[in-house]
Each structure stands twice: as C-alpha cells, then as structure tokens.
C-alpha cells in the first residue's frame, strides 16, 4: 500500500454568525495518498473550499472553529498548530492555487518580488540564487521571456499567464501537497486545456499529491485518480474515478453525471435534480439530500445514513444498506 500523505478524520467546522453557530462541515473523512490526485466535487456551498482552507490553516480565526476531528499531514497532527508553526508548512510543504488569478496576486508588487517571498521565508538563498530559481520555475510553467516577466506587474499579464505565475509560486519550494481550488474555472476552454496539461506534466515530474477542488465533472474525469463527492458539508461518496462514472452509488452523484448536457440526447429535456442545495441551518436529522432525492423513503428523513463500503467505494446512502443494496442505474 502506498503511503498516506494527508488524512482527515471526522472533521467538523463551525462558523459563528449573527444568529448563532452553523456547522458547514460535518464529519468529513478522507485520505490522500502520495503521488495521487484526489478530486473534490460539489456545488457551491457544499463545503469543499472550507475543507481545503482548514487543511492550509487559513480559516478566519475569530469566526470559525474546528469543533471535531483531526487533520494529519505526514502522520503529524496539524489541526491545532499555531500560526508560527503553520507558517513553516505553508508554501513549503503544502501550497495552494486559488480560483481567481486576477485577485490572488498582489497588484503592487512585481512578479519577481512576489515569487521571491516563499524562498525568503523558507530557503536560505542569496539574492542571485533566488533570481535564478524564479526564472527556472517560470520557464518550467511555460512562461516566455521569463527574464523580463519578473519585472512586470500582474496587470500586465493575461489570465492564463497569471494562473501560470500562481502555479509557479505554489511550486517554488517543491511542496508535497498542492491544493488547487477551482484553478481553471475563471479561464477560457483553450487556456483551461493548456493549464490542465501543464499540471499533469508537473505532477508527474515532481511526484506531488494534488487535492483538486472543482465543480466540473469533465475536469475531474481528466485529472483525478479518485474522487470525493461532497454535498451540504458531508462526503456522500468516495470512489476510484472510473468506478464513480460507471457505477455511482449515491443518487446525488448519479444526478450530477446525468445532468451533464453531453449525457443527454440533443434538444431533449435534460435530467435535473429538483430543488436546491439546503442552507446549513435547514438540514434536519435525516439525510441532507432526502428532500431532493428521487429514491427517498421514510428512513432517509428519520435518520442520517452512515458510510457504507463496497470495497474501496464508499457511499453515504440508505440504499446501500446490506439488506437493501439497491442498484440505482
């Protein structure tokens, strides 16, 4: 068995709001192995970004709290590290690429200055070595004229170039874990294809683990080895990529796959999941998906399903209970 790099056990996160506390993340469990790409899929509000921020220790300190569970990185508990300890990890052992390449670079520093920062923090390098390292990494991510680009400001670059700079920034210290939060959502399809190619190639070269957060099932199909499907703050299904597309066990996953336009006959009515994602305060004691599920029965409303496993394929749905085992094809 390959080594586990990141393990999240029964994670629960609470946010304070004006009206009291809500809990957007409830009992999230997953593991990320070394050299693996794990996709996290879900709609907005399903808690995928909050989970990734928790791993990076970037949750807003005053408003949020990890109320249960733990995050193990390299067999070390990092759940309650303080800011100083986290700083040693972030950008060095783990780093993150954000969705908006337009807003995640600081507009008042040049590319060179921004890329120098993680090296200053984590590596003992002379100014000259730093510059060489930056140019080398920029060339690696396919930026032309790297020697001049380091003196440019972010607004002088296009969206695709900025996302390349973000990727190079994340890669500088050769992290073991790279979290990508919707890295291509803001980009055009042709640029998206470029960036995905680049990320595949870099991952293969550096043998990193990727945690790939997206809502686009097509991107997941291209990039990932395994997939975690999240719905309303819970993990509803975990499976190997082909298994997930061939044989989804949770009605939500099946609904998502079926509602892709490419899986429906042209001009026909698209399959759609009725209703909408519940707000965190609307979730009752039953299954969070029960009110939208076409297969729901009494038990679903009464109590929340535990995780059932079928080999490596995990799902949280009463249909998979051993005496039921309904096939939802």
């Amino acid at each position: 068995m390959t080594e586990v790099l990141l393990e999240i056990k029964d994670l629960g996160i609470q946010f304070k709001t004006g009206e009291g506390a809500i809990q957007p993340i409830r009992g999230v469990n997953f593991t990320l192995k070394k050299g693996e790409t794990l996709g996290v899929v879900g709609e907005s509000g399903s808690g995928k970004s909050v989970t990734s921020l928790a791993v990076m220790g970037l949750l807003p300190e005053k408003k949020s709290k990890i109320v249960s569970g733990s995050i193990l990185f390299n067999n070390e508990d990092i759940t309650h590290l303080n800011e100083r300890q986290y700083r040693k990890l972030r950008g060095n052992e783990m780093s993150m690429i954000f969705q908006e390449p337009m807003t995640s670079l600081n507009p008042v520093f040049t590319i060179g200055e921004q890329l120098g920062e993680p090296l200053k923090q984590h590596k003992k390098m002379s100014k000259k070595e730093r510059k060489e390292a930056i140019i080398k990494i920029l060339k690696q991510v396919g930026i032309p004229r790297a020697e001049q680009i380091i003196n440019d400001y972010p607004h002088q670059l296009s969206g695709g170039m900025r996302q390349r700079v973000m990727i190079s920034l994340a890669l500088l210290c050769e992290p073991k874990l790279l979290i990508c939060d919707e890295p291509t959502t803001a980009l055009d399809v042709t640029i998206q294809a470029q960036i995905l190619e680049l990320m595949k190639q870099i991952k293969a070269e550096k043998n990193m683990s990727l945690l790939f957060i997206t809502h686009d099932l097509g991107v997941v199909a291209e990039m990932c080895d395994r997939v975690v499907v999240m719905y309303a703050g819970e993990i509803v299904e975990v499976a190997e990529i082909n298994e997930l597309f061939d044989n989804p066990l949770h009605p939500y996953t099946k609904g998502l796959i079926d509602s892709l336009p490419t899986n429906n006959a042209r001009k026909s009515k698209l399959y759609s999941i009725k209703g909408q994602v519940p707000k965190p305060d609307e979730i009752g004691k039953g299954c969070a998906f029960a009110n939208r599920c076409p297969y729901a029965f009494n038990k679903c409303v009464e109590s929340a399903p535990p995780t059932f496993s079928k080999g490596e394929h995990l799902s949280k749905c009463w249909l998979q209970e051993s005496d039921r085992q309904v096939n939802i094809q």
């Binding site: 042709t190 995905l196 190619e197 686009d216 097509g218 199909a221």
Partner: peptide
C-alpha cells in the same frame, strides 16, 4: 478542448 464526459473517453486534443 472541452473536457471529456467519461474518464475512459480518449480525446485527440489540440492544445
């Protein structure tokens, strides 16, 4: 450049 709809679909990609 449109992402595939199933991981087993192999696509001749023009990047």
């Amino acid at each position: 450049a449109v992402p595939v709809s199933h991981p087993k679909d192999v696509k001749e990609r023009i990047v």
